[in-house]
Design a protein around this nucleic acid. Structure first.
Lengths: 254, 254
DNA sequence: TGCGTTCGTGCAATATCATGCAGAGAAGGA
DNA sequence: TCCTTCTCTGCATGATATTGCACGAACGCA
């Protein structure tokens, strides 16, 4: 693994999890803590993160803000959500992931008169669709993973394998030409992989900051997905690496 | 756990609960009280909290007096919810039903330091407990019954039979001396019956308007439940028919 | 006042940190 | 090919930070 890749991974981790612990990183990457600490020192010198005893925090994050989650890009996400809602046909069974983009999609759906079945492992999505008369909701049970508020674990996977959705809208942390789709948590990755395997079509909701990013746990390679849904405002140089690999791109928004 | 994370957790706890007790914190984080006290001293030196004997309070009274985010509940529902929360012991596995009283109970729980596992078939309850670090949440999957927003059906029942909660707080539509516990929907009744069968103890959350009422579908007879949790403000003539049948009554509130 | 709890400080043990140094391997020129 | 140079990595070392325990003082409650 290249040094720059390692540093990028550290920054990714900081973005998705909000903290990095030197010891954990050294175990995960099978490198000495010295090497990780060196990286952290250098990244701190560049102002890209904030060094603390035992690890590092994002550069900007103040102590009092630590527990808060990171902010979103509303315009981008809303356009993607609306376009995704438009891809659903009456009578279809749709799987919705967790995450802010998926919740935005559920809210978009709630504003339509679509007749469909939505399967989800996110209670937030279920609550967002509660008031919609035309949409039947199926909830996947299991242990609730607090960080992203979706169910995971053996129970979730078992339930998922008994359903065959027509289309799956997947949210991820990173979408990379070489490393494929990645997310920050192993359990989540397993659940997403199971859903994708069951679904006739998998569409990845790709807001701008995800393109080119890599996170710790691999979900599926790029050739396992059917299309990437990106905002039209997204710069071409972020998208080109994927088109040249033959990934189908769907543009959202005006 | 990083030191800064611990301090952030203390500040977060102060904001959400309004106080921190050194001893409780040390038990929860499995650290000595000295370490917690040191954190409290340092945070107090930075002006981020106010030190008091035994623990700490938010820095300014103004912060503590901020209007609570919680919705105002009718008095006796809130009293029942609070009393129910008090019946839960650390380490127990608790099943929470759907319904307004159960959601009020979840919100009461969210204001405590309790360590417990909450199993529920209500996404609303899951969302209400999302921010609580000490509570592990297990969600029961299945078809979402829109009217009351809980999962029902074969999948739900199957999942329920694999769990054995210590205590089940049941919400119903009607509680009648002769007809027992009733609810408005056949599927819901089946789910409640299954949960009650699995649970070591079943407690019925009995707000005043339910006493003496009857609904279409029978859940279980009165002799299958362990106690009826009623508000202290509830008139005795509503309760007497149940005491004379030998039902154990727990009074909530001052 | 008496008693148990909590507090603060000093101290020792452990964990983490920064720096210097040496070996392994890659890059590049002779 | 051989050699030099450079980078990366892990280890050793001394410095610093964190943690838990001990002990006497302060505090709160009855």
């Amino acid at each position: 693994m290249l040094t720059v890749e390692r540093k990028a991974l550290i920054l990714q981790r900081l973005e998705s999890v909000g903290r990095v612990v030197a010891k954990e990183m050294s175990l995960e990457l099978e490198l000495s803590e010295d090497t990780i600490r060196r990286d952290l020192r250098e990244l701190a010198a560049e102002g890209l993160l904030q060094r603390v005893h035992g690890g590092a925090l994002p550069a900007s994050k103040a102590l009092a803000d630590l527990p808060t989650r990171r902010k979103v890009q509303p315009a981008d996400k809303a356009a993607i959500a609306k376009a995704a809602a438009g891809m659903i046909k009456n009578g279809q069974t749709v799987f919705l992931d967790g995450g802010t983009t998926a919740i935005a999609l559920a809210r978009s759906l709630a504003a339509t008169d679509l007749q469909a079945t939505v399967v989800t492992h996110s209670p937030d999505v279920a609550v967002a669709l509660h008031a919609h008369g035309g949409v039947e909701v199926e909830l996947i049970g299991g242990r609730l993973y607090k960080h992203s508020n979706v169910t995971v674990g053996a129970v979730a996977i078992e339930e998922i394998t008994s359903i065959r959705p027509d289309i799956y809208f997947m949210g991820v942390t990173g979408i990379h030409p070489e490393y494929g789709l990645t997310t920050g948590n192993r359990e989540e990755a397993a659940v997403k992989r199971a859903i994708s395997r069951q679904s006739a079509e998998t569409v990845v909701l790709a807001s701008r900051e995800k393109l080119g990013a890599v996170s710790a746990h691999s979900v599926v390679p790029l050739d396992q997905i059917d299309s990437l849904l990106v905002a039209r405002s997204c710069p071409p140089d972020l998208i080109d690496p994927f088109t040249s690999l033959g990934v189908s791109i769907v543009h959202a928004g005006a």
